[in-house]
Design a protein around this nucleic acid. Structure first.
Lengths: 277, 277
DNA sequence: GCCAGCATGTAGTAAAATTACAGCAATATT
DNA sequence: AATATTGCTGTAATTTTACTACATGCTGGC
């Protein structure tokens, strides 16, 4: 639809063209807008807007809204397009969402290559699990902790380097340390991994394959390469990490069987109104 | 959308239900149909059709056509299949990932209906922004806070009800309170929203449309309906929320222009090795 | 300078969506 | 068992909205 408008652009009268331009610039706003609103927004009259609709092959203004939503909700692919300062806010929003979707699709494609079973095996026997990450990864860590503890395994979150190192220093054989780091570049992470594995604990790393941390880890989940340099680009790879941890969580719940799912149910019930009274 | 109708099916009155059935059976015909046509086709009256629309969370009959075209034009892949105890771990992992992807695809399709611009406008002028959420939503809140503060707007996270209420109580006209709650069922949230709006602050809610909280909010982002009851099913709707906040964040950065993107760049540089030395 | 042809807006109209209200049925209350 | 209450449903009025017919003004050709 938007392509058709572009196509018709040359043979439009000046005011019709203003309508076309506005619609192309604010497609989201145009959807569900009233005829009068579009007209005033384009600085023209209502009949002109209707004439525009007819000229691009539509039966009337009403159909415009429908065709437009179609065009907006079914874009060909979710390939990554960088967000730039010139993007209208609705364009930008869609691009960000597309990047996130693509990120998850990538993750799904690589899922079969991930050592989920190995991770689940170790976590299943764990005396305790600690999730460690700095900055944005810290949020992923605490989110994961919040999820996994409901399986009945003691969990904790470590969001600064001293804590991580201390945990590694006192780790025991059945402890699991999950290290989250996009780049794997913090030297303390590799150090913590070495200390922890040295004490017999399992270290699960979600990080860049090429890093020192990756080399030290017991179980390695290769993180997505962050290809973009734009400051606008969102943290879509973090979303993929969350989804991955979600998946591991469910796999772990299944592996631990009925006991774990009962605990999940109980913790879920605790949030229902009237519980405990 | 169709899923939402299905979900609402049980709590509909008889004639509303006839409308729902007919729409589910003839979705294509329903798109672009006149109110009178739908009414006669369902053997009921026009107001009943409108009441039906309202009940499934729409603003009116007009919006139904839009939402319906969205639902029809979006590719129906990655359909949700419940994870069961018999699933092998790799099956489960893929199912969870698919659910997450679907969740984001849904969000993308509904993005055009979201009041992103309105939210950005209010946030852009904000003296401060507070993100509030309990439990899992608390993580989303702190994650959002962590993202938004880099734009140069003072941000904070509120993760318990006393804090939320206190914030609302002292909120000022240009303050923005972002409330995250899947169900919108906590009465304190609606209360906080009422207090804050009463004091002239903006309340942006990401929650269930039918909730009290939704009614009190200044700007409402309808949350995805959580259709599944399985304890295994992951928190994919939370992922969608994160992605949504990401998108809003980028839109806000664009709206605030060069100053904001500079700040983003600076905060990013601060993480580079060698910075400050 | 006048006319032909087209672009654009004004004002009116038909139709469609929405609201207000009232009747009625089912359930709850005493 | 009678009454009150709640909520569903349709009728009719109201408002909004899309669309049409017509008038005005402008541009270029003669």
């Amino acid at each position: 639809m938007l392509a058709e408008i572009n196509l018709a652009l040359p043979n439009l009268s000046p005011s019709e063209r203003r309508v076309a331009d506005w619609i192309l610039a604010h497609p989201k706003e145009a959807v569900g807008a009233k005829l009068a609103h579009v007209a005033s927004e384009c600085g023209t009259s209502e009949p002109t807007v209707i004439r525009f609709c007819r000229r691009v092959g539509l039966s009337g203004f009403r159909e415009l809204g429908i065709r437009l939503t179609e065009a907006l909700s079914r874009p060909a692919s979710y390939v990554h397009r960088d967000v730039g300062p010139d993007d209208s806010s609705s364009d930008a929003v869609i691009k960000v969402m597309d990047a996130s979707i693509q990120s998850l699709l990538d993750m799904r494609a690589r899922l079969s290559a991930m050592p989920v079973d190995e991770a689940v095996r170790r976590m299943s026997k764990a005396r305790q699990i600690a999730f460690a990450g700095l900055g944005a990864s810290g949020h992923v860590a605490s989110d994961a902790c919040h999820k996994f503890f409901r399986l009945g395994i003691p969990c904790s979150t470590l969001t600064d380097t001293p804590m991580i190192l201390q945990f590694a220093a006192i780790a025991e054989a059945n402890d699991v340390l999950v290290l989250l780091s996009h780049t794997g570049r913090w030297p303390e992470f590799a150090k913590a991994a070495r200390i922890a594995t040295g004490r017999g604990a399992s270290v699960i790393a979600i990080t860049n394959v090429a890093s020192d941390l990756a080399a030290e880890a017991t179980v390695l989940f290769p993180a997505q390469v962050i290809e973009d340099t734009s400051v606008f680009t969102p943290m879509s790879s973090r979303l993929a990490q969350l989804a991955l941890l979600d998946a591991i969580h469910v796999a772990l719940a299944l592996a631990r069987g009925a006991a774990a799912s009962d605990r999940l149910r109980l913790s879920k019930n605790a949030l229902q109104p009237g519980f405990g009274s």
